[in-house]
Simulated scan of single mutants.
Amino acid sequence: MTDPIMMAQMVSGAGFIAALDQSGGSTPGALKAYGVPEDQFAGDDARMFELIHEMRVRIITAPSFNGKKVLGAILFEKTMDGQADGLPVPTALWKRGVVPFLKMDKGLEDEANGVQLMKPMPGLDDLLARAVKLGVFGTKMRSVIKSANREGIAAIVKQQFEIGEQIIAHGLIPILEPEVSIKAPDREAIEAILLEELTKGLDALTGDKQVMLKLSIPAKADTYTPLVGHYRVARVVALSGGFSCDEACEHLSHNHGMIASFSRALLEDLRHGQSDEEFDAVLGKAIDQIYTASVVKG
């Protein structure tokens, strides 16, 4: 059963979702950007995940990180299973008014038909059941579109909705994330096809099922407005997709109804060596900027 208070916050709250879900492949880069030398974790996965957990705990326990502007946070599985302030991380987040989500995909297949589907997810039902017990509200899963190949895009959307149905069966809200590469030369054509395919998938849902959508900021502003207003969509959020924070916020501010779900753009100026006061000031500045782009539209 979906938590009605969390659901109300996600549907109509003013703010954005923080993506704190770097996994094994992207963790080394995240730590380097944070100012942790590679020789502190190279070849030692346990130490690497310990360091990234310390970074994430520092973020979610910072004074500026709370439900006034941060509506939700997407967690890596190991972060979900960890603790912050002596509490399970999902509990600690919700205590601060931030709705917890889980990144549950296992990475991407090789490219075919211009897209990368998600890899198989063995043990998914067990993972979802554990997430429910820990108080997680929803999940996120990512696949990638690189060219305007209708067959490939249709396959991406089909896979997202099929697994989304499995997630809904556990009482969780799925965030479907068919990312469009911002480097694709035919982005507008991709986005037009994606809009059609997502609309078909939404129209095929039954009962009272709803999903959230996490989409690349479109090349043409307000391309996804029909999805924002679709009765099967609880919220449409945007990934930064490789844009800097300034670039992502500028583009997002022209897309009505879309709020941010940024990762690198949120964390890009945070450094391991900053004092707690400096760290919170830098984080607070980024939160304010992303919040404004999410709620104030040009």
Rank of each mutant, 00 (worst) to 15 (best):
L102Y: 07
I59F: 04
I59R: 10
R96I: 03
A112N: 14
D45N: 07
F101N: 10
D81W: 05
P63R: 12
P88M: 11
A42L: 09
M104V: 15
D81T: 05
P90I: 11
D85P: 00
V70M: 13
D44A: 03
F101W: 10
G114S: 09
M55L: 07
T91H: 07
V115R: 06
P88R: 13
V98A: 03
A84I: 07
M104I: 14
R58K: 14
D39I: 04
D81G: 03
G114C: 09
H53W: 02
L75C: 12
P90H: 08
D110T: 09
N113V: 00
K95E: 15
G82C: 08
K68I: 00
M118V: 07
G97N: 09
L51F: 15
L87I: 01
K103V: 01
E111D: 01
F101A: 11
R47C: 00
M55T: 00
S64Q: 11
A112H: 11
V57A: 07
G43H: 11
M48W: 05
A73D: 11
K68Q: 14
G107D: 06
E54S: 14
G114T: 08
L71E: 07
P90R: 15
D45P: 03
F65L: 10
L87H: 10
K103M: 01
V89W: 01
F41V: 08
V89G: 03
G43A: 07
V89D: 05
F65I: 06
E77R: 10
P63W: 03
A73M: 13
R56G: 10
I52L: 05
I59V: 15
E77P: 05
R96D: 05
E109D: 08
T79H: 07
K119H: 06
M80P: 09
W94D: 03
E54M: 09
A84K: 11
I52P: 00
W94P: 04
N66T: 06
I74Q: 04
M104E: 07
K103L: 01
S64T: 14
M55P: 00
G82D: 15
M118A: 13
I74K: 05
K106D: 02
A73G: 12
F101C: 05
G82F: 09
G114D: 08
D45F: 04
D110S: 10
K103G: 01
H53F: 00
I60C: 07
E54T: 13
F76C: 03
K68S: 14
I60V: 14
F41T: 10
K95Y: 03
A112E: 14
G72D: 11
D39Y: 10
L117C: 08
K69N: 06
D45G: 02
A73E: 12
